[in-house]
């Protein structure tokens, strides 16, 4: 069988090889690079979509978080106010109660004083009457006679008046 020389130049062989490379270039471009690049682009689009979605959700979540945080802080404030109000109310009420109690105690004390004074006056009156009775009896017994009821009473009254003035 015939063989070529080790170094043999043939224009047609060169041309065929030239065309082979060009054909392979189109094959590689069409059947390897384009599908792969298409796939990569698709996947990137997919990933970008997922990332975008995630970002949106994150944004929504952060907005929610801010909302809830503001609500929470206002809730704290409200609770503080409620407590403050309650404390103020309770203070007022306790003041009122204490004032009432004081008043009542004062009233009782005053009443007691008045009663005591009244009692004292009564007692004084009683003592005076008894003294009058006693003195009239004493004078009756001492004089043993009835001068004039009317005169006597006047005299004693005068006397007693003197005593009262002195005491």
């Amino acid at each position: 069988m015939q063989t070529l020389d080790i170094i043999s130049i043939n224009i047609w062989q060169i041309l065929i090889s030239f065309c082979n490379l060009i054909i392979l270039f189109f094959i590689v471009k069409k059947f390897l690079f384009e599908p792969v690049k298409k796939m990569v682009a698709e996947r990137e689009a997919l990933a970008a979509g997922i990332i975008e979605e995630a970002n949106e959700q994150k944004k929504a979540a952060s907005a929610d978080k801010a909302l809830w945080e503001s609500k929470l802080s206002t809730a704290d404030k409200e609770a503080d106010e409620i407590i403050k109000k309650a404390v103020a109310k309770a203070d007022k009420r306790s003041d009122v109660i204490i004032g009432n109690a004081q008043e009542r105690a004062d009233g009782i004390l005053r009443q007691a004083k008045i009663d005591a004074e009244l009692e004292q006056k009564k007692a004084q009156e009683g003592i005076r009457r008894e003294i009058i009775d006693l003195s009239s009896v004493l004078t009756k017994k001492m004089l043993k006679r009835e001068i004039n009821e009317q005169d006597h009473r006047e005299m004693i009254d005068e006397f007693l008046q003197d005593i009262g003035d002195i005491s």
Partner: peptide, 8 residues
Amino acid sequence: DLNVVAGW
């Protein structure tokens, strides 16, 4: 083969 590489 020289021709093949020469084409490229």
